[in-house]
């Protein structure tokens, strides 16, 4: 069964990769560089998904004190962080191609930087607490505290930094006008493919983390 799922995900992802490069036409406004959206947007979506999952699991941990929830929260935060880094890199590469600058403090770049900082701080906190039960509790609290601050961030950042982000260009005029049906097909396939990949990695990482913790407990 895992092999079937694995093969299935592999097929979708290879399809997306080939489709993104050969099947879709270049975008009208942004040209060839727009192909990055088939990777950048799904990756950013996954990191948002993973962070929300981490938050949910942290709440569950504080409610139940079940270490299983802490495992899930930590794994989600770690995956979220990795995908967030990928989103930052793909974004920066695109920014270089489009505006000849890797970084220009556009609102989303500001927000993503702060998200990265939040979860780096989260792991900093985890490594600074030696007692496992205290670590789980404090990490969960920090995860939730950070999520209280996020809405403020998303509210305030666009008001202070002005936007260059292309999706306001793409979305504001109705997506079907600029994205033709082949692009849409590959785009949604990419979203589905990345989401499946994420869940696959998520389930595997949880199993690994469980084993790691069991070994830590029984060692010595």
């Amino acid at each position: 069964m895992p092999y079937i799922i694995g093969t299935f995900i592999f097929t979708i992802m290879s399809g997306v990769l080939c489709g993104a490069i050969w099947f879709t036409p270049p975008a009208k406004v942004l040209g060839e560089t727009a192909r990055v959206i088939y990777f950048h947007v799904p990756v950013a979506w996954i990191s948002a998904l993973a962070f929300s999952m981490s938050l949910w699991q942290s709440v569950q941990y504080l409610r139940t004190n079940n270490p299983e929830h802490d495992i899930r929260a930590e794994v989600s935060a770690r995956l979220g962080l990795w995908f967030c880094v990928l989103a930052t890199i793909t974004g920066a590469v695109f920014a270089k191609a489009a505006w000849n600058m890797y970084w220009n403090w556009d609102p989303r770049e500001v927000s993503i930087t702060i998200l990265l900082l939040v979860y780096m701080a989260y792991f900093g906190l985890r490594s600074a607490v030696s007692d496992p039960e205290t670590r789980m509790r404090l990490a969960a609290v920090y995860d939730i505290l950070a999520s209280f601050a996020m809405p403020f961030l998303f509210f305030v950042v666009p008001r202070i930094y002005s936007s260059l982000h292309p999706d306001t260009v793409i979305n504001s005029r109705g997506s079907n006008k600029i994205l033709d049906h082949r692009m849409l097909l590959v785009f949604f396939a990419a979203l589905i493919g990345f989401t499946l990949t994420y869940f696959w990695i998520y389930v595997l990482s949880i199993r690994v983390e469980r084993l790691v913790r069991a070994r830590e407990e029984s060692d010595e």
Binding site: D131, P132, E216, E217, D219, E220
Partner: peptide, 8 residues
């Protein structure tokens, strides 16, 4: 009541 500190 059971208490363990890490592996101990």
């Amino acid at each position: 009541v059971t208490k363990r500190f890490g592996p101990n």
